[in-house]
Design a protein around this nucleic acid. Sequence first.
DNA 1: TCCCGTCTCCATCTTTTGGCGGAGGCCGGG
DNA 2: CCCGGCCTCCGCCAAAAGATGGAGACGGGA
Lengths: 214, 214
Amino acid sequence: MMTMEKIRILLVDDHQVVRQGLTMFLSLEPNLDIVGEASNGAEALERVGTLRPDVVLMDLLMPVMDGVEATRRIKEGFPDTEVIALTSVLEDRLVVGAVEAGATGYLLKDTRPHELIDAILAASRGEVQLHPEAKKRLVREARTPEMLEPLTARETETLRLVAKGLSNKEIAKAFDVSEVTVKSHVSSVFAKLGVSSRTQAALFALKQGWVGLE
Amino acid sequence: MMTMEKIRILLVDDHQVVRQGLTMFLSLEPNLDIVGEASNGAEALERVGTLRPDVVLMDLLMPVMDGVEATRRIKEGFPDTEVIALTSVLEDRLVVGAVEAGATGYLLKDTRPHELIDAILAASRGEVQLHPEAKKRLVREARTPEMLEPLTARETETLRLVAKGLSNKEIAKAFDVSEVTVKSHVSSVFAKLGVSSRTQAALFALKQGWVGLE
DNA sequence: TCCCGTCTCCATCTTTTGGCGGAGGCCGGG
DNA sequence: CCCGGCCTCCGCCAAAAGATGGAGACGGGA
């Protein structure tokens, strides 16, 4: 077996503490080597050029140049460099954006240490490693309207009013039914669309063009 | 003083019971005369042509032709006929639509009897009579972005995430602040925009083009 | 006729949302 | 140097939203 080269890592995060924390326990791992840090996307891009890391741990929410854009440019200029997106929150737009931009992994900051290390090792081998919830988001995003469980007439009408910003109580009045009934319709709509709040449902309906903005 | 002609009224509502109820107590009023009923917009338009009522009490949510459209056509064909919009719920789109279409009044179905009668009398004189809350909605709708109290940087960012469907907890994570802080930002945003729910705030931001749908 | 889907409603429970007032730290302009 | 706006956080509270599981009615299709 050939000599095991250390995996060269670039940390990109706008929070000093986060970088410090990551450095802390990643440096405990013998075959990992943190070769540099950057606090925004622009810096990251430049450091990748000079340091040529194997793996970039990239925060997505940063000033100057966000992580998605930075990821895209890194993969453009240095396709061999693997990027693992690291965020504190799962946001659909970010998950999709990062993956489209070429991120090899998508992890949350509260991921347990050893999982992060596993992900880095996997990434250095070019394997894809996604946070389980991130997978779901991707699936949801990719889901086209025709593969959705169809909404019933009442559910469609309910969603229309939800997407207009009405409360359950108001919808109940408009339909002249009890509020519980509306809630049950709203719940089934959520389940069918795979969302978890009325705002998300509204956005979904808007995206699908099921309702207009006026 | 000249002979007091009875005010000729046309009731338009898709619910039999509503029409019956209205007929009930409106017919108690000596100078009101219910000359006909219709259960949808198309019917209403036709009846206006044949019955030539002075005032039309128009429900806005109806099958076949909605009340807004019916109102528009009635005012086109018979400008002297006054239309009072009557709904069970205050919906911005409907309020604005009805007023634009030429409705002389906008009342809720739970309006007290004598107020309704007052409104009819006022309408027959061509006076405008709006439900107080409806006025607010109109004002809000007419409010252009430049007359809005400006949002602070944090508030703008918060609104952006709200408009992506994130919960307060998720936003707090993204900003790395406590949830209470997010709530206070969200509340000020609501106050400044004049909305009362995150979905409405999201729709507002979308309408203003402050955020995209992606 | 019986079954299935839909629509309606109920109770119960937890979580989230939103309103209220207040408070301390920070920073920049007057 | 003080003031005002901004950001942060606190507690308290009421209301709304969501999840869950169940139930009766109705109507159409097998």
